[in-house]
């Protein structure tokens, strides 16, 4: 779990965009850990949300993830 969290944070920090889809985050983690399962990535992402390191960004119809403090993180 800690390895996946680290890979997620690295992906989030190095990604060109400050908000990204779950599938893209999963692909980013797979580059480092090829055998990781989607559900494990989700559990790690949820843990990072609870630690307030990641944030959800929702348009209402679809949801993205982002790194807290990077890009838009406050109300408009």
């Amino acid at each position: 779990m800690e390895d996946i969290k680290k890979a997620i944070l690295e992906f989030a920090e190095n990604n060109k965009k400050s908000k990204f889809y779950f599938a893209d985050m999963e692909k980013g983690v797979r580059k480092v850990m090829p055998d990781v399962k989607a559900r494990e990535v989700k559990k790690a992402a949820t843990s990072l949300i609870n630690e307030e390191k990641l944030i959800y960004y929702s348009t209402g119809s679809s949801t993205m993830y982002g790194l807290k403090g990077r890009g838009q993180t406050e109300d408009y």
Binding site: N50, Y57, S58, T59, G60, D75
Partner: peptide, 20 residues
């Protein structure tokens, strides 16, 4: 209207839709 954003309740990724 502008929609979407960071707003939500802690731990939930759904249930709240930001609108400004």
């Amino acid at each position: 209207w502008k929609h979407g954003g960071i707003v939500g309740v802690f731990g939930y990724g759904g249930g709240v839709i930001g609108r400004y």
